[in-house]
């Protein structure tokens, strides 16, 4: 575990220095870590329990980076990768659930499925994912904000720190994004 941590910290440091590694290389590492964490946590939780994206991401941070602060950039790279990884995991999970539901094989959800943040209705995760894909094609930073705020569960403050902008900026953009997403997704369902 400490070995992973050292590897990861080294990779972060290398990216920070502009070395040969790129931030993309973080993604598979973080992705695996999150999945592994989710699986092992599920093994310890009671059946039917769900996991919290925020705590998973923060736990992954502790495991991969440790208590030392690798600096603003390192943090940015990590949470950038982690939020993307989390989004993938949530979307995969939603797809899998949908498949299983259609296949009528419900019991297997509990056996195989790692239930993260299942409070989000299945359709919503997929719908949000698609909407966000549209959003980020036009404005990449907004996509990152959704990933960090919504999928990785970071606070405004943490999001601002990761993006290197002021908290006010995040708050303001998030206000817009929320309103945009709501109208994008659910205008017709409104009472």
């Amino acid at each position: 575990m400490a070995d992973d941590r050292t590897e990861f910290t080294r990779l972060l440091a290398d990216i920070e220095k502009g070395g040969k590694h790129s931030a993309d290389e973080l993604l598979p590492l973080v992705y695996e870590e999150l999945r592994m964490l989710a699986r092992s946590r599920m093994a310890r939780e009671l059946p039917g329990q769900t996991l919290q994206a925020t705590s998973l991401v923060h736990e992954a941070w502790m495991r991969l980076v440790g208590p030392e602060d690798p600096g603003w950039n390192g943090k940015g790279h990590f949470f950038g990768a982690a939020s993307l990884a989390m989004r993938r995991i949530l979307v995969e999970q939603a797809r899998r659930k949908k498949r299983l539901k259609h296949g009528g094989d419900r019991d297997r959800v509990a056996l195989e499925g790692v239930d993260i943040a299942a409070e989000i209705p299945v359709a919503d995760v997929l719908a949000v994912d698609e909407a966000v894909a549209r959003l980020e094609r036009q404005d990449e930073r907004k996509g990152r904000i959704v990933n960090l705020r919504y999928f990785a569960g970071l606070t405004n403050h943490e999001t601002a720190e990761v993006l290197g902008v002021s908290e006010g900026t995040v708050e303001r953009e998030w206000r817009f994004i929320k309103a945009w997403l709501k109208t994008e997704l659910g205008g017709d369902e409104r009472a």
């Binding site: 943040a117 705020r149 309103a179 709501k182 409104r190 009472a191």
Partner: peptide, 29 residues
């Protein structure tokens, strides 16, 4: 129309966040 709809979504008191996944389910006002 879009801006008005969006402003409306600000007013109805519900918020969208990870903790409030009920995205489009806001009905009371």
């Amino acid at each position: 129309t879009r801006v008005e709809a969006m402003l409306g979504s600000l007013e109805d008191g519900a918020s969208l966040s990870l903790n409030d996944p009920g995205l489009a389910r806001v009905t009371e006002g």
